[in-house]
Write a protein that binds this DNA or RNA. Structure first.
Lengths: 132, 132
DNA sequence: ACCATCTGGTTGTACCGTCGAACCATGCAG
DNA sequence: CTGCATGGTTCGACGGTACAACCAGATGGT
């Protein structure tokens, strides 16, 4: 609870890492950048959002000029999401901000616990996977 | 990021622990219950919310019958927050739900890492204190 | 003692993220 | 061909938060 408040996670329209970007849009950028291309339904699954929310979210990203919608090959219903060149640079910029923020955070933990903290977060992410 | 999504932290109007309660209200209940009585301005500081948001939030808790507003003694401006009997039992119920949820989560991490995970979260909470 | 300033709270307004439902188009099986 | 499931979009509603304006009680300097 303290971590959530202190880190600013209770503010959905502002990234904890200082980017003037809704948290969910930032997460979407991470997912798309990581995969290169991503089905919209798959994005909804990973972000744990309703398909309607994802549809709006993606529209926002398109309006920013960061994402390009394409009909998925082999399935006329599906939408494939790709990063535009501008989107790629934006994702890189956001990754930098995230890295800076996280190193600033880690600088404040005793150096003999840093590795443990990082590993613990990975463990938590795995423990909460899918069906939790 | 994965932990935030998987744990349901992106849903401000629903507790990750299953309570049909906004996250901020749940946090407020924890703070008030811990202190027994709390100044509203102090609650705003701990929750990292604007005083206007806290004012509304507290009004909600009052409407639920969980919190009682009193004028702070020694300062006619201040408001002192106290739990009603119903609020005390509600807080206890929420604490149970939280405990259940967290033990369920910890059951999914390898038992030789549980202590490390808990300690890491405490460390993170401290590292993000106040001025971060 | 008085006035300016500060501090704690409240209310009004606006914004935005999320959901649920209704709707449409495409894929798929009987 | 028909019925159902799947992926997306749009609409309406809800709700949490911030910012600004405002008010009342406190505080300090002259």
């Amino acid at each position: 609870m303290r971590f959530v408040r202190n880190f600013g996670l209770h503010q959905p329209d502002r990234t904890p890492c200082g980017q003037p970007l809704p948290v969910s849009e930032a997460h979407a950028m991470v997912e798309i950048a990581r995969e290169g291309q991503l089905r919209q339904v798959e994005l909804a699954r990973r972000l744990r959002l309703e398909k309607s929310s994802v549809s709006r979210l993606v529209t926002n990203l398109v309006n920013r000029g960061w994402v390009h919608r394409e009909t998925a090959e082999g399935d006329g219903r599906g939408v494939l999401l790709l990063l535009t060149p501008a989107g790629t640079t934006a994702a890189a910029r956001q990754a930098d901000a995230r890295r800076a923020r996280l190193t600033a955070l880690l600088d404040r933990v005793p150096d003999d616990q840093r590795a443990a903290v990082v590993r613990a977060l990975q463990t938590l992410a795995e423990a909460t996977g899918e069906t939790f």
